[in-house]
Amino acid sequence: MSAGRTVLSNNVSKDRVVSKFEQAYHADATPYQKMNFHPKVKSACSENRTGTVGLKISKAVIVGDVSVGKTCFVNRFCHDVFDRDYKATIGVDFEVEKFSILSTNFTFQIWDTAGQERFKCIAASYYRGANVVIVAFDLTEEDSLNNVDRWMEDASENASEPIKFLIGNKRDLLSDAAYEDIESRAVDAANRLGAEYWAVSAKTGENVREFFFRAVSLTFDSQMLKELESTRTVSSKQIGNDLISLQKQNTNLYEAQKKKKLKCCDTS
């Protein structure tokens, strides 16, 4: 996507290839005890049976208080840049990253939301259907950690069993001793939220890449598993999951047409 990257023939850049399961940052602060891809997922990928598993796509939302560094965190990963004076996000920013996981193409959408109170009212529509919820706070601002419960609650309410993360940003601003103080509180919070905890620095890039690899590994594994199991039970051919729909023309123009819903594989 960016100019400086080597792009492989299947349109995924070289540094987006995931071949091993990224481990949790803190073994005591994660509900996800998986150490590797599920054997079923592995064999489906290696035997190239994933073609029948629908569109491999995951939606992530990142939420948290104003200026905890959500956009910087995303930009560090997506563009490998850091800009201290990055403007406040209006509403929501949108990024797409393409991965190759176990040689299977996988798309990761990142919806980077605004922390301002005034955008709260619209958030629900952006959270809808999220597979991954990332709540970010500022390791140097205690207050931002106090609000994480509310953020997690709001974002998860509109998602369906999302994979949850708690991210402490700006690790570079703290000494190791100061960090240890806040870490125990953050770990408590993560366990309370049922989320996996990570400490990162958008500025130095510390743990940013590892975090995103962890996130896509987890979401890829759980989505693939879910779909592999559902395709086994449902014999009828089905493309995609219910995230994808083909838009019918003028759906609300004529009442009578509503009854004849278009199946998503019809392209007329």
Partner: peptide, 10 residues
């Protein structure tokens, strides 16, 4: 080539 949520036929 990214799959999308909603495909508009036209």
């Amino acid at each position: 080539t990214i799959p999308a949520h909603t495909i508009l036929p036209s």
